[in-house]
Structures are given as structure tokens and as C-alpha cells.
Amino acid sequence: MNITLTLLWQTVAFFLFAFTCWKFIWPFLIRAMRERQETIAQGLENAAKAEQDLHQAQGRAEQMLTDARAEARGIVDAARGQAAQMIETAKADAETERARILAAAQADAAQEMNRAKEALRAEVAELAVAGAEKILEGSIDRNRHDALLSRLAAEL
């Protein structure tokens, strides 16, 4: 328990260890710790940025998908419209064609009827003349009355 030279030795040892720590231990540990802190801070920052980028990309993808859907719907709508129009056109064409064919048929029929009428007239005139000849027994000059009969036939 006496105070001895031990005290001074301990003082010297204290300075030696403090110096060793000061020069050879502390700076290296602190530098490594600071560097790691920076690395971690950088990493966290990068992660946050990456997350933000991801959000943005997701937003863009969403947007693109929506746009594509809208475009597809537009195309389908346009195609439906076109198809309907084509059907309308075809219907109209068919209607026109039908009308034309009908008209042509009617015209043919009318022509045929006229021709038949013509023939009938001619025949009726013949019959009328023959009948009249028989009634009048030659009093009628055939050549004289031909013009008259033709007129009559035309009036029928």
C-alpha cells in the first residue's frame, strides 16, 4: 500500500498506451467507420432513388397499358363502324340493283304486252274486216277501207 516507484512506471505506461492508441489505432478505426457510414448513406440514397425510379416506371407502364387499351377500343370501334358502313353500302347497292332489275323486267313485260297488243290489234282488225266482209258481202272495197281499218286498230 506504500506509494512507490510503481506509480511513475504506471504514468509512463499510461502515456505509451495513450500514444499508441492516438497514433496507430484510433485514426484507422474512425476512418473505416466514417467510410462505412458514407457507404451506407449512399446505399440508402440509391435504394430510395431506385424505388422512385421503379414507381415512375410502373406509372409509365400503367399509362402505356391504358393508352394501348384505349387505342385497341378505338380500332375495334372503327372496324365495327366500317363493317356497318360496308353492310349499309352493300344493302344500298343491292337495293339499287334490285330496283334496276325490277325496272328492266317491268320494261320487258310492258314491251311484251305492247307487242301482244299490237298483234291482237292486227288480228282484231283482220277479224273485224273479215266480219264486215261477210256482213257486207263485197260491198266494201278492201283497198279503200284498209286505211280506215288500220286507224281503227291503232285506236284499240
Binding site: T4, T6, W9, W26
Partner: peptide, 29 residues
Amino acid sequence: MGFWAINVDSIAWSVGLGVVFCVLFGLAA
């Protein structure tokens, strides 16, 4: 023995433990 004596055990353990400190922390450093 008076003042001019040395507690060998105190100094040896003290310096030994100081060396333990330096080696441990020096290795880490």
C-alpha cells in the same frame, strides 16, 4: 524498501492488460 520499490504484479498485469487492449483494438484497426 521505501519508495524505490516496484510492485511487479501490479505493473505486469497493468501493462499486460494494456497490451491486450492495444492488440485487440490494433487488430480491429
